[in-house]
Design a protein around this nucleic acid. Structure first.
Lengths: 217, 217
DNA sequence: TGTAGCATTAAACATTCGTTTTAAACGGCC
DNA sequence: GGCCGTTTAAAACGAATGTTTAATGCTACA
């Protein structure tokens, strides 16, 4: 159907990101990728050079627009607010929604959320190695915005809570298994990214705005 | 010094849990374990049967007392309360503190927290396979306690928030790298389990007690 | 003292991994 | 049409993995 048939390189990328998201990076062999993509084994090393470079390419393809969207959201909001501090929920949404958005519109379905969830763990080494700067810049922008939104908290506390938020966020989209375990076999509502987001936002906002150490409650 | 020298089996267990916590299960080979433990390679398969069985033994040794402590804490509190619903913070502390406690008193240092953090990811398959029942029972007890503590939330919302709590909790003890990233190179306070706990409790309690869907705020 | 049973050792096993090599097929351009 | 850079194909390489085997050491008990 495509006028330009999907290139070997793109087929590798798309297949790799799916398998990485499903089984993890270490557990996904180049042979599994190339077999699923109907591509020769050597094509990976030809097009990317190594497995590490393939991992980098996979993450770059997703992290780049994600970080861009997060930064753009924040800047748009801050410009509109004109110097005034943003709402905590607004900041959280600006950070989280690109994740859900890309998961919904992207051709790869909900792959990104699962892929990103692993970026805190197995892929932490990769992401940190060749993507620290961009991630760093975005996180610090959000950190500053959050500091202005909750001036009562110390800078240290802001960092802690953003750290907690990241953990909550990525885990929330990672595993549906825990939810079933918690429900104890009873029928469960759906666990789509949209529903998860609806449940997640109040939790995060409340956690972020909790009283700090120095405050007399 | 020890009257009874540490057995080969225990040396394998202790060394394996340390390496698993440091580098992950998949990235830790039996040869690395046996070399670090000054033990023959075949001893692992002799004493445990397989690497999977070793992983199971490592997790069992920690999950068993952890689950037991969590259950004991909750039952003690509920008995003392005499039918009255517990405080949310009390429930959270009953759940989290055994983690910190064992990390402080255990001979293996802070290994458990990092080990447990991986139980949601790489080790999820292992833990789920041979430890679903015990974990399940404990989680459902806490779910019920939390439902009584926050009756305004629907059962579904309780499950979601406990799920979020677990994600936050395990990630909080997993990586110190993100905190440095967030701080942006500035000097950071310590990230000991105790400090983490101090920062974590208010975040979790506030998130758990956030208004639900049905409530008019 | 001798022997049965458990524990340890060194060596090899079969797979699987990422990577490299060699050759063949394709496609545009002078 | 013939050359050349690009892409694919098949096979092999070396290293590392979990596992097994066969032999040896050791201890306890009769």
């Amino acid at each position: 159907m495509d006028s330009t048939p999907i290139s070997t390189r793109d087929r590798i990328l798309t297949t790799a990101e799916r398998l990485f998201a499903e089984a993890g990076i270490g557990a996904t062999s180049l042979r599994a990728i190339t077999a699923a993509a109907n591509v020769n084994l050597a094509a990976v090393n030809y097009h990317f050079g190594s497995k590490d470079a393939l991992v980098e390419a996979v993450y770059r393809r997703h992290l780049e627009p994600l970080n861009a969207a997060r930064l753009r959201n924040l800047e748009t909001l801050e410009t509109a607010a004109g110097g005034q501090a943003l709402d905590v929920e607004t900041i959280v949404r600006a950070f989280v929604e690109p994740l859900v958005e890309q998961a919904r519109t992207g051709a790869s379905g909900a792959v990104l959320t699962r892929l990103l969830a692993q970026s805190l763990h197995e892929a932490a080494g990769y992401v940190e190695r060749f993507y620290a700067r961009e991630n760093d810049a975005v996180l610090q922008r959000y950190r500053d915005a959050m500091q202005r939104a909750i001036p009562a908290l110390s800078p240290d506390e802001i960092c802690w809570r953003l750290n907690f938020m990241l953990g909550t966020l990525h885990n929330a989209f990672l595993d549906a298994g825990l939810l079933k375990l918690l429900a104890g076999g009873e029928n469960r509502a759906e666990t789509s990214p949209e529903v998860t987001l609806t449940q997640l936002i109040p939790f995060l906002v409340a956690g972020l705005t909790a009283p700090g150490q120095r405050e007399a409650i």
